[in-house]
């Protein structure tokens, strides 16, 4: 009894002793980490030391990195950012649903549905072919110009519509590529069981397709989060516009840096996470 347990412990110890190859690889890893650390620190130090030596540095520091202005405006910027979050929160589901609908339009195979398919193609071509800001201007200024009564002249409605139109076109393309990536044999297997085309799409193809394109769609929604700021051109005082107001008030650019920080805090982790998902998927596939 005691004998076997001590044997087990010996085996465990043996398992933990690194093999020659593991020891070598650990050594290489330590060395490259050290080199990476040293080079990063020297680059950062160089920036910290050299940039302030530039002749215009003091002026730039005063205009862009003013601690007093930052402290005074940052809470207000955060408040304004809530509006970005809200616009994002109601646009995102609309975009996801519209994108899915357009992707399915493009996939319609029945001849009677040819117009639907044509519509899907035209939609994605047109809205991917236009700058977001242009669509926002045209719809955001154009439609309320018709003299509609409240609340139908609200820039929130038409700004959101513009975002939905453009982004759903991209989402539709991503979903369609996901649909194309599902192997024909999955459809065959489902068809051989007597399932209808609709059910094959709904229960077999789409669930797999959508799962495959989650990382790609995440990248789109990160881009959307940034482009919400474009709505400020047609009215809503979101964080970018608010930063502009503060800039005029304080005659100082620091509020823009504050707004940038707010975006980065959100988008950088999200981007890292999307990359992580993408890598995981690529590894699973290979």
């Amino acid at each position: 009894m005691a004998d076997t347990s001590s044997q087990n412990r010996a085996a465990e110890l043996l398992a933990k002793t690194p093999t020659r190859r593991e020891a070598y690889e650990a050594d290489v890893r330590r060395r490259s980490n050290r080199i990476a650390l040293i080079s990063t620190v020297s680059v950062v130090l160089a920036i910290i030391v050299l940039v302030p030596l530039a002749p215009g540095w003091e002026a730039v520091q005063r205009a862009f990195f003013n601690g007093r202005v930052f402290a005074a405006t940052f809470p207000g910027l955060l408040d304004a950012f809530l509006l970005n979050v809200m616009i994002f929160a109601w646009s995102a589901p609309l975009i996801a649903l519209t994108g899915l609908a357009i992707a399915l339009c493009r996939d319609a195979r029945a001849p009677a549905l040819f117009p639907v398919r044509l519509f899907g193609i035209a939609y994605t071509d047109v809205f991917r072919g236009l700058p977001v800001v242009l669509v926002i201007y045209i719809i955001g200024f154009g439609v309320p110009g018709l003299g509609l009564p409240r609340p139908w002249n609200s820039p929130y409605i038409w700004g959101t519509l513009a975002l939905v139109l453009v982004y759903s076109a991209y989402v539709a393309e991503v979903i369609r590529s996901g649909i194309d990536s599902i192997h024909q044999s999955q459809r065959s297997a489902a068809a051989s069981l007597g399932l209808s085309d609709r059910d094959i799409m709904r229960f077999v193809v789409l669930p797999q397709a959508i799962r495959n394109v989650v990382p790609a769609n995440m990248n789109l929604f990160i881009a959307l989060q940034k482009d919400v700021a474009l709505l400020s051109f047609i009215g809503p005082v979101e964080v970018f516009r608010q930063a502009g107001v503060y800039k005029s008030l304080y005659a100082n650019f620091t509020p823009y840096v504050g707004a940038a920080l707010i975006f980065l805090v959100l988008t950088v982790p999200a981007t890292r996470y999307a990359d992580y998902l993408m890598n995981k998927q690529n590894r699973a596939r290979s």
């Binding site: 297997a189 489902a190 007597g194 209808s196 797999q208």
Partner: peptide, 25 residues
């Protein structure tokens, strides 16, 4: 029909794979 490469639906459990067609059809 049963295929060489199984062609099970990877996002469903074995039981869900089996029940899908009887449920829908």
């Amino acid at each position: 029909i049963v295929f060489q490469s199984f062609n099970l639906f990877p996002h469903m459990t074995a039981a869900e794979n089996v029940m899908l067609a009887p449920r829908r059809v």
